[in-house]
Simulated scan of single mutants.
Amino acid sequence: MKVHVKNNRWKPGSFPNTPEGEEVFTITQARLDDALAEYPDLKGRADYVVDWDTDNFASSMRDADVLLTWDLPMADLATVAPRLKWIHCIGAGVEHMLPISDWLPKGVVLTNNKGVHAAKAGEFGLMAVLMLHSKMPAIVTNQRNEVYDSLYASPIAGRTLVVLGTGSLGGAGAQAVQKLGVHVIGVNRSGQPVDGCDEVVTTDHLDEVLPRADYLLIATPDTPQTRGLMDRRRLDLMKPGAGIINIGREAVMDYGALCDKLQDGSLGGAILDVFDPEPIAADSRLWATPNLIITPHVSADDGDAYVPMTLGLFFRNMRLFLDDQPLLNPVRPELGY
């Protein structure tokens, strides 16, 4: 069996979106060997071709059974890679591959990295909610403007957090914040119970719970169903002084409307970690918006262990693949996640 590993060199407007990210996300032969040491039963059962961009993609994929990648050339993939049976995306979000049904050959399974990000995302979500509660976005704005105002906060117990998207990222944030005595309302497609949530409602009840939120944590993927979900009308439903965190995707929220509401003071603050494009353009109004903290898409990525955790998931799936068993984290093309 042959596995093709497609890494990406950093370049503007691509993934990784910074030079530092290239080191974090690159799967080298040494990293493969280190990870395989934890799975001795898999040694010698596959050949690995470690490549960059599309340098050798077409020639290598002629006899590849598995592709480990962030992205790929999608045109006529069934002809380019006739033996391909499984693609693993090293990210949780696969919006860059949509619409999946347009290019994924019949019989090929696509899996993603869901779950790898949970621990870091939970810590970030907790930190961000506490920062909003302690008025840190306003304090940072005051520092920038050389203003020394005392902005006080009480303990957070008794406040309400709405988590829009209760998958591995949002779910981890919900569990971390709930421990502080915060009432957590989850919003998801199914309405099924979620650990860390005191209530769960379906997305069509979002308008009913937004006015209750002291804080909103957005952790949804970018899909046709989620794009524009937090538009200006829904931002207007939030109570004065509420805070917003987005660790999902920019497409879910109207950032222009958010900036307007931060500018006029009708929202208390925001922490944004996801943008399109990344990095943010130098002339973006986000840079100068008050009571806004920008983090450079680092909420859920472990800079030290991202590749080892990714390969751990990949090799657990490899065992299942070799045994002709269903794989972990299958992406549903009709849903886009």
Rank of each mutant, 00 (worst) to 15 (best):
P16R: 14
Q29P: 13
A30E: 15
R31S: 09
A35D: 09
A37Y: 09
E38G: 14
P40D: 09
K43D: 05
G44I: 00
D51V: 11
D63H: 15
A75I: 00
L77F: 06
I87G: 09
V94C: 06
E95D: 15
P99L: 03
W103Q: 02
P105T: 05
V108P: 14
T111I: 05
N113F: 05
G115N: 05
H117D: 06
G122S: 04
M127W: 10
M127A: 13
M131I: 04
M131G: 06
L132W: 10
I139E: 02
N142F: 06
N145M: 08
E146M: 08
L151M: 10
S154A: 10
V162R: 10
G170I: 12
A172D: 00
K179P: 00
V187G: 04
D195L: 04
C197A: 02
E199C: 00
D204R: 04
E208P: 04
P221Y: 05
R227P: 02
L235H: 02
M238L: 15
I244C: 12
I245W: 01
N246C: 07
M253D: 08
D254G: 07
G268V: 11
A270S: 02
D283Q: 15
L286S: 01
I293N: 01
G303H: 11
A305M: 10
P308V: 14
L327K: 06
N329T: 03
P330G: 12
